[in-house]
Structures are given as C-alpha cells and as structure tokens.
Design a protein around this nucleic acid. Structure first.
Lengths: 205, 205
DNA sequence: CCTTGTGAACGGATTCACAGCT
DNA sequence: AGCTGTGAATCCGTTCACAAGG
C-alpha cells in the first residue's frame, strides 16, 4: 500500500464521486478531458493522478468507468469508515442527519452529549450516550474518527476524551486549535475562516 | 491592496483568530515561536507571513498582539462579510444558528427555501424568503456570498439563482460540482471527502 | 489520428541559514 | 543573548512537451 500526498488523495476521492455520478447516468467510458471539465482540474493532472495506480486507460477510448472506480477505491476506500459524534447541538444533529453519513462508505455509529435529557434518545438510528460512557462505548463501535461539534470552550476536553477512547482521527468543527498526541490526525473545519478567505478572493479581483 | 496567495490568506485569518484568543487571555506580546506552538505551523513560516505586512515585530519582545492583529485585519478583513443561505433544512438551520455567523466579522442577512411553510418565518433574526424572491431580495441585503445547503440534486439550479442575484462568491455544501461563470468564486465543502481523506491519513501510518 | 502515459522543466511555497536589531 | 527579518536553497506539485499505443 503506497503512500500518496494528501492532495492526490483528495482529488482521487473526488474522482470516485464523479465516476459514481457518471455510472448513474449510464456512461461506460470517460476521457481525462471530460473528467477535467467536470472537476475543474486539468486533463494532465488527472492522467498523472491515475497513472499512480497503474496503466488503466485505453488510448482512443479513455477510461472504463467501472474499472477505474474500483481501482481508485482500492487505494482510498478499502472499507467503510465509522465515525462517532461528540456534541448533539444544532450542528451535531445536522451532521447526524447528513445523508452522506449513512451509506456504505461512511457510517455514523454513536453520538455523545453532556445533556442528560438527550442521552438515551436516538436520531436517525444513532443512539446518544453520555460523555462519561465514551471510553467504554467507543471501542465497541469500531469507530475510527471522532467529530467535535461541542461549544468552542469545551473543544480541548472533548479532544482528550476522543484520544482516551482510542480514536486516531478527529474532525474539529470548533474555531479552536486542539492539542493531541502526534499520532492522532486532526482536520479542522473552521467555517468562519472558509467564508472570510472566500471573501478575500472576491475582493482582490 | 496587495494580493497574497490563498494559503497565506488562510493562515493570516488563523493568526487573527489566535490573536483574538490571546487578547482575551490578557496577553500583550507573543513570539513567533508561541504562535507556531498554537497553530501547528513553524515559527519561520509565521515570520515570513507577517513580514508581508511590514516590519511589525520587535526583537527580544515578539509581536504586540493588539497592533499585529489590527495590521493583519487591515489586509484580510476590511469590513463585515454578508452572507445569504439557500436551503433551510437540517444543515441550513444549523448554519443559521452557528455562532460564528452573528458577529462583527460575518453576518447572515437572509435565507431562502422552496418550502412555503418555512417562508415568512425567522430563525435567529434571519428572515426566510421564497426562492423566487432571491433576485429581488439579495441585492437589497448587500450580501457578498451565497451558501448552497439544498439537496444535491438541486445544487446547479440554486447556483444559477445565486449568480443571477449578482453574488460573486458561493460556498457549496453539496457533494456536486457546480458550473458558474469564471468571475464567480466557489468553495466546495464536501464533508464525505473530508472524512474519507482523514481516514486515508490514519491508515497509511 | 486521438487519447493515455510520463520524464523533464517550471513555479510557487516552505525551510534553511544567517544578518540585523535591541 | 534572544528574538525578528530575509535572501538563498530546497522541496513538492503542476504543467509542458512529447513518446506510446490501439
């Protein structure tokens, strides 16, 4: 299992998503140029990326979609990802209900909240537990990733619980930087920064 | 007003956020090394970035937080960003209620939904209009950015409405690629891809 | 021919190494 | 000494130009 740069991985996942759509449309073959149109990348970029995975295209015809998809998935999507959620507030509940988290690729398997009134309830088949139960419950779920969707001031303690539960991946939706051991991977999604940076793009034109 | 690479802009916004927090903690000065610790970047990177904005640090003392913050904000945050939301479903309502969208930096000014039952209601002081009203209402709000939080199959038509309303920035939360004129900036936030790419990071260690 | 595949050239961003300041 | 500031060097990713193949 070779290692690829993050950028390549992200693009590859985008290709898989795109190929899924093309399959639904009943297409059989696709050229790097068509993929480039859809994904807003260049055709060379796409061929370079795909060439990482071997010679899979056919000159004159392009790529056989089903075959390409299965090859790419072999590298970036061996099996379902299981995630658990910490913080069932506005954002948390929306994440639980997000359609992308209930398919064969990603599955939400448990949620945690400090509010005793929420504990024991279910949203979309996802059961809500108390924070204290995390270190006991999480290992049983075989989860790999924890989501932080609590108020910003509790992000660090939540991160500590996630690490203590044995998870090695964290998606942090709070506008804070959390401290974790270096073998734990963190992805920060700060909506404010996303919006403000887009605004900068607009202005400097 | 000089132009900086996106990466620099994103980091600069992160510095501003961090400096805000440090100010709240009552700190007056900060060194590039301390900032590096907090933000998980290198001290040189931080000094390079800051040097874009002039000589603002003081050897031996570091940076005066209040001063540095105001200098950085001058470049990346001249005035409040106004956003409008399309699609008041689970995700949409969570975004309206997101605390980061009701301060002096970002303000949500209107929301749109096709569901007539929602039209006319308010969430958190944000009024909900019908999709048809967008081209009339949006210009009055002085919004700069539109958010797509509708079901994936309606992303393109929503994008068309946003463009027709005169907005030049789009944040797209659907797992689709939208087509827009080339002077319109799009930021795609595909939660599934974020999670899957994090999962790849974890696995290849 | 038309499209994939790829070594080489290029460019931009990060890091290094050190000069400058107090 | 201890920090900031910065030209030079390095690294990584993208693009170019062209070879390969049905």
């Amino acid at each position: 299992m070779k290692k690829f740069p993050q950028k390549t991985v992200t693009r590859t996942l985008l290709y898989v998503r795109t190929l899924d759509n093309l399959l639904e449309q009943g297409k059989k073959f696709v050229s790097s140029w068509e993929l480039a149109e859809i994904t807003d990348l260049t055709d060379v970029q796409i061929r370079k990326d795909i060439s990482n995975f071997g010679r899979v295209g056919r000159p004159r015809l392009g790529y056989e979609i089903r075959k390409l998809k299965s090859i790419l998935e072999e590298y970036v999507l061996q099996h379902t990802v299981h995630v658990v959620l910490f913080g069932v507030g506005n954002l948390g509940s929306a994440i639980i209900r997000y359609p992308g988290f209930h398919n064969e690729k990603i599955k939400m398997v448990a949620a945690f909240d400090v509010d005793k009134k929420k504990v024991g309830k279910k949203i979309r088949d996802v059961k809500i537990y108390s924070f204290d139960e995390a270190t006991k419950v999480v290992p049983k779920t075989h989860a790999e990733i924890g989501i932080i969707a609590v108020p910003a001031e509790h992000s660090q303690e939540t991160a500590d619980i996630i690490v203590a539960s044995g998870l090695r991946g964290i998606v942090n939706f709070t506008p804070t930087t959390i401290n974790v051991p270096k073998d734990v991977f963190v992805k920060n999604i700060d909506l404010s920064i996303e919006f403000l940076s887009l605004f900068c793009d607009i202005q400097r034109t």
